[in-house]
Design a protein around this nucleic acid. Sequence first.
DNA 1: CCCCTGAGTTTAGTATCTAGTACTCAGTCG
DNA 2: CGACTGAGTACTAGATACTAAACTCAGGGG
Lengths: 169, 169
Amino acid sequence: MDGRTPAPEGIDADARLDRDTSNCSIARTLEIVGEKWTILILREIFYGSSRFGEFERVLGCPRNLLAARLRMLVEEGILATETYQVPGSRSRPKYVITPRGMDLIPAVLGLLQWGDRYRADPEGPAMLTRHHGCGAPVGVEVRCEAGHAVAAEDIESLPGPTFRLRKAG
Amino acid sequence: MDGRTPAPEGIDADARLDRDTSNCSIARTLEIVGEKWTILILREIFYGSSRFGEFERVLGCPRNLLAARLRMLVEEGILATETYQVPGSRSRPKYVITPRGMDLIPAVLGLLQWGDRYRADPEGPAMLTRHHGCGAPVGVEVRCEAGHAVAAEDIESLPGPTFRLRKAG
DNA sequence: CCCCTGAGTTTAGTATCTAGTACTCAGTCG
DNA sequence: CGACTGAGTACTAGATACTAAACTCAGGGG
């Protein structure tokens, strides 16, 4: 295979190049989380932030973008708003992650893991992640439903139920 | 827990908000693959594309950006150039994925999996992935080095070797 | 009543990115 | 020689993002 991953089964080269990628799940996910700051907001949520001012302070991002990203994440059901109240102040909104948002954690952890491996300082990464139960470091793995660990080379792609070709033109 | 993931152990709230995030592995990974088109180029590599014209045709992205993204991916060691030659033409460059690039597959598969779950058409996704060995669908899982499957709630974060605070100011 | 705080919105100027087209360049074919 | 092809580069217009500051809004406190 000269360094390439396996080409999709059951698609000839023309169909592969003529396929309609508008319903690609990767593209659709990136429409939501692919803009600058969005993944970093999720990182801060993951590390325990929940208030507008906390995100602004630790990320250093423009308030208008922060507001726009938070709105998008809430609209998409990845975050939800609740209220908090410190004594002597009125109640204010905070942002909490939903189950739908939790399901993005493997993707974010995948980015973290790659960065730890290839882009960390020689002394190691800034943050470590470990299993609350046993204390061992955590990572993401590719596995099949039969429970086997799957190497990247052994992942096979094939057309799914909504595979389609572009309109001729 | 009120819907939040565990805050990092061993960091008080001030330190969390004052920490220097410039060496965060997620941010560093996004510096490379966080720009528009980059992940989609990797998707096409994964599906078997390798030539400039193939990426352009199937992605429909501007040629100058495609050239810039490919250059970045090669500089970062995620792709490498080789040459190909069709009979009767001169040799031309093509792009192949490196082991370093292969290690991004879990992150990309994480995005794919989330999109399949929450953003696919009702009839299903456009593409399926399965294990070449046994044919079962593949996905990404969070696991610890001790081999346990780890739920998102059981991931614990703590300061690593290069954790640091921002300069006061 | 006025000031304070946190969470935004609005506005304005600048920088960067994106899209789309036009152009270049190197070899091959007729 | 001139046309053709794939892989880019160059250029221009428009969108988006960044910086920075001012402004709004709803309570609470002095």
